[in-house]
Design a protein around this nucleic acid. Structure first.
Length: 271
DNA sequence: AGCCAGGACAAGT
DNA sequence: ACTTGTCATGGC
């Protein structure tokens, strides 16, 4: 059983491992052959970046209709990074961690993952998300599970989520699943509306505040002007931009934020 | 052992 | 409108 493989030249600013493991997504893993493996929708993807090319275990058609968007393949990051370089700190961050792109994940998975992220650390977030999928998702192939839909979770209780060991977040997951499943929070409308609409809608969910809403809008709806301020970004703003964010990131605040976040979290700072 | 984590909420000023 | 204590759990 030989798997189909697709190969394509990567854009210039493109680092697969970095973008899949810089705190935007929580369930990509590297296998023994160096492939990054993960589930998007109802399919297992195995990706490898090598010699300026990206290899993917699917057909060109499937790649173009899914991964191309997921990986933000068609955005001109080169121009963006040049613009960011007008700011000294942003210049350093984009040079040192070149190739980060903003993923376009599924909105529900994004919302749920970042509800889980609150007052939590990344290794444990990954564990909880993994247990969520193993317990309530569907096994696609051995060891790979789909992310359970809002509809599936909306029929559960907080007690049902005990095996996740997600603590106080369980009740938030349940509330979110109900409001998304019954349309009280309308993803389609958020998707095609200006970012401000989503900001108002998402915080109607218990356990969703400003930060989780911004993350959902950025990583799940592709609203690159969204600007999540977690503890790390707050430090950056306080230390480096006390008088306001630099003009050069305007409109792409979320993308700049991702570079700064990863840069600061990896122990970089100006002394 | 103790501090902290990609926060949000409720109660208290 | 701002500040503070609390919330589960476990990584380091």
């Amino acid at each position: 059983m030989k798997e189909e493989m697709f190969e394509i030249n990567t854009p210039e600013i493109f680092n697969l491992e970095l973008m899949l493991d810089c705190g935007q997504a929580f369930r990509w893993k590297k296998d023994e052959n160096g492939y990054m493996c993960g589930v998007v929708g109802n399919r297992v993807y195995k990706l490898l970046q090598k010699d300026g090319k990206l290899i993917c275990n699917c057909t060109a058609e499937v790649f173009n209709s899914t991964m191309r968007k997921y990986l933000d393949f068609d955005r001109d990051y080169k121009s963006l990074v040049q613009e960011f370089a007008k700011d000294e700190y942003l210049k350093k961050a984009t040079e040192e961690f070149s190739g980060i792109r903003i993923l376009r994940q599924e909105p529900w998975e994004t919302l749920c993952s970042f509800i889980i992220s609150q007052n939590n650390n990344i290794p444990r977030i990954k564990g909880i998300v993994e247990r969520l999928c193993e317990n309530f998702g569907e096994e696609i192939e051995k060891g790979y599970y789909s992310f359970p839909s809002a509809e599936q979770l909306s029929s559960l209780t907080v007690e049902d989520l005990a095996p996740l060991r997600s603590g106080f977040r369980a009740k938030y997951i349940i509330d979110a699943s109900k409001k998304v499943a019954n349309g009280e929070v309308d993803f389609e409308k958020i998707d095609k509306s200006p970012v401000e609409f989503g900001r108002e809608e998402l915080v109607k969910i218990k356990g969703v505040g400003k930060k989780v809403a911004e993350c959902t809008l950025l990583y799940g709806f592709g609203k690159v002007e969204a600007f999540p301020e977690d503890v790390w970004v707050k430090r950056i703003v306080a230390e480096m931009y006390p008088d306001g964010l630099p003009e050069c990131m305007k409109g792409y605040d979320g993308i700049a934020q991702q570079y700064l976040f990863h840069w600061r979290r990896n122990g970089k700072e100006f002394l």
